[in-house]
Structure formats: C-alpha cells, structure tokens
C-alpha cells in the first residue's frame, strides 16, 4: 500500500463508522500506542470533516495488560491519555495491524478498567490473519494474507515520516 491507498482506506473506514453508528454523536476514538494513535487522529479528522462534529480521541498504552510480561523484556510504559469519560460511549478502538488478537485483548481489558463503554468496535488498517483469540475487526483497511513468519510493517507520517505498508519475508 502506498500513501494514497492508506488515505483512501481510512476515508472509507470513517464513512463506515458513521454509517454503523448513525453519525458521530456518541462516538470516541481510542488509538493503541504507538501507531494506532495517528490512525485514530486521522479518522477523527475525517469524521469531523464529513459531519462537522468534533470527535474525542484518546491514546491507550497496553503494556500493563500484556499476557507475555513474564517472557519478554520490560518495555517503557507511556502514559495513557483518555481525556473523556468512556462510560456510555461507542468506543472505536484503532490499531495499525491486527494479527494474533492479543494486543486487542489487552486493550479491551485496559479500556474496561477505565469505565463501561456502551460498545467497543475495532478498526484496523491491516488484517493479516493468524488470530489466536476469538477477535474480529469491525472495520478493515485491507486484508493481507500472510505467512506466519512474515512481518507486516505499517509506516505512518506522524511516526515514521511516510505512509506505506511493507510486507517482509523472514530474513535468513
């Protein structure tokens, strides 16, 4: 995917969110750190352009909720910032790549510790398959069939200086 593909996919997702939730009235976007956050922000801007209604955006660090804490190096924890009450809201959780589903599982736990949303929906730029948990996205930018060992990297302007999705074969 190139920058134009990414833009088109996010615009389509914004429309789908509005359609499914009957407008922007009660929705809020929560991006999973790191690359879910710019995706949430872009979706919010697009929605605002379409509906002329501001949409709240939050960021979520799921480090404290990971299920592999015991086996992997300790990562720095960034402050989560959810500047609104999630209770009663239609929350759209966003991430760049949906893979095993474990990150989303952690994000669901983290969100539910903060409050009680009316619903949680999941938006992802790339769904590469290989789910290990019963988790299904509500909005997908592109389905990319992959082998398990392959790497999918989403590059975003805000973090990486460009918009691009690359698929890499395992090296060696």
């Amino acid at each position: 995917m190139d920058a134009e593909d990414v833009r088109r996919a996010l615009t389509r997702i914004a429309h789908e969110i509005l359609e499914r939730n009957h407008g922007a009235g009660n929705i809020a976007l929560v991006g999973i750190l790191t690359r879910g956050v710019p995706i949430a922000e872009r979706l919010a801007q697009t929605i605002q352009r379409i509906e002329s209604t501001p949409v709240a955006v939050g960021r979520l660090d799921i480090g404290l909720y990971r299920d592999d804490y015991a086996h992997r190096p300790t990562v720095p924890i960034a402050p989560s910032a959810i500047p609104f009450d999630v209770t009663g809201k239609q929350i759209i959780l966003t991430d760049d790549v949906l893979f095993t589903g474990r990150t989303v599982r952690a994000a669901l736990s983290a969100l539910l510790d903060i409050g009680r949303p009316a619903s949680i929906q999941l938006a992802t730029l790339i769904d590469r398959g290989h789910r290990e948990l019963p988790i299904r996205p509500d909005y997908v930018g592109k389905n990319v069939p992959t082998a398990r060992q392959e790497h999918v990297r989403v590059l975003l302007q805000e973090v990486d200086g460009e918009d691009r999705v690359v698929l890499r074969k395992p090296s060696g």
């Binding site: 660090d61 404290l64 924890i77 402050p79 989560s80 510790d113």
Partner: peptide
C-alpha cells in the same frame, strides 16, 4: 518516567492493573 505513567492508575476508581 514509568512512575509518571503508573501514577495515573492511582487516580482511577478501580485501582488495579493485571500486570
């Protein structure tokens, strides 16, 4: 830095994370 991030949990109604 980590303590700064974790201090937020102390302000929640449910002060617990599963880490």
């Amino acid at each position: 830095d980590t303590a700064t991030a974790l201090k937020e949990i102390l302000q929640r109604p449910v002060k617990k994370v599963p880490t």
